Computed example of a mutant assay.
Amino acid sequence: MPQGVSDTPVEEEAQGGHSQLVTSSSRQCSTAAANPPVVVKDNHYALLDTGEKKSPPTVKGVKPRTPKAGRSAATTDKKRRVVVVGDSLLRGTETPICRPDRSSREVCCLPGARIRDVTEALSRIIRPSDYYPMLLIHVGTNDTARCDAEQIKSDYRALGVRVKEFGAQVVFSSILPVEGRGPGRDRCIVEVNAWLRRWCRQEGFGFLDHGMLFEEGLLGTDGVHLSKRGKALFAHRLANLVRRALN
């Protein structure tokens, strides 16, 4: 998979009307697809060590619906898979996330995707025959281009209803900041992330809070995608969370 990101801003990629689904795992396929962290005691995923001294990632959420000790015989027989799905910011994270065990880890990158695109794509990504200790979702950057926080929240709620059908432990990744796109978009991202944190707690989802870590020199020249260093850090944080889910 390519290790660099596209020079095209995320929101411009979405205007084509269709997104390409790029997956990385033991198989390859493609299909069309229409603040500083606070540690919470009831936390299935403990504080992760990124090797950075600032803003370590925190995942807030509840314990998995199906703990290892309580799995039924039918669940035990299923193949364990962790899926990371989202927009083009995931491009370049495939190798760090999947390399340890490609048979149980998969990154599904949908360039230009909005929240609704992920909702629609899940039925093609999740296999009823498998067991999912975690489904990690990173999406929302494209949606904030319209600065419509209420519509974004509504789309997240619809996505939440959809993911609950799969019985997986779901973790939402906070929207990363952008640069040079105006104060209105900045305010929208801050507002949505604050709401997303509360909503995940209410709904029993995990929340991976990146805070404002990616604001300082880690964004690319377009102000939306990540620089090479930013992408490496982002991939490291996601990979650490996936590793914890499978251990």
Rank of each mutant, 00 (worst) to 15 (best):
A145M: 10
H225C: 03
L213F: 05
A33W: 02
G112M: 04
R71D: 00
F205S: 02
V83S: 08
P133D: 03
S6A: 09
G51W: 03
N193H: 10
F172Y: 15
A158K: 14
N142Q: 13
L47W: 08
L21N: 05
H138F: 10
Y132D: 04
Y156D: 03
T141G: 00
V107M: 01
Y132S: 15
V40W: 08
L241R: 09
D87E: 10
N35P: 14
K79R: 13
V242C: 15
S174Q: 03
A232Q: 13
A69D: 09
R162H: 05
Y156V: 02
G220M: 13
G167C: 12
S26M: 05
L48Q: 12
L233I: 12
H18C: 06
I189E: 02
M1E: 00
V224F: 00
L246N: 03
Q15D: 06
V10G: 11
S6N: 10
G180V: 04
E94A: 09
S72L: 07
C108L: 13
E106H: 07
R185K: 14
A235L: 03
R244D: 15
A33D: 13
Q15W: 14
K231N: 06
D49I: 06
G16P: 10
K79L: 10
W195T: 05
I125T: 04
K78Q: 12
S19W: 02
Q20N: 06
T141H: 01
I125G: 00
V107L: 02
E11F: 05
R114Q: 11
T8W: 06
G182E: 01
A168Q: 09
L122R: 14
M212E: 03
H210G: 14
V190E: 08
E191W: 01
S72E: 07
R116P: 00
I152F: 01
L213I: 11
H44K: 14
G16E: 06
Q151W: 08
R157S: 01
E106L: 07
I189Y: 01
E215R: 05
V40C: 12
L110Q: 09
V83W: 10
P2H: 10
I137A: 06
D77V: 07
D42F: 14
A158N: 13
F205R: 12
A74R: 15
V107D: 00
S104L: 07
V190D: 02
G17P: 11
T93P: 08
V82G: 13
A113H: 10
P128I: 15
T8D: 00
N193K: 15
V85I: 10
Q20P: 05
R185G: 09
L196V: 14
N35V: 08
G206F: 11
I115W: 11
G204W: 13
A245V: 05
K63S: 10
G211H: 04
C109I: 01
A69M: 06
A158C: 06
A14T: 14
R65E: 09
Q151D: 15
L208S: 11
R243E: 10
Q169R: 15
I152R: 08
A32Y: 10
D209Y: 04
L110W: 00
W195A: 03
T75W: 07
K231L: 12
R237C: 04
S19L: 01
P9G: 09
T221G: 08
D155R: 06
L135H: 06
D148T: 07
E12S: 04
R229Q: 15
M212W: 01
C147S: 04
S25A: 07
C147H: 12
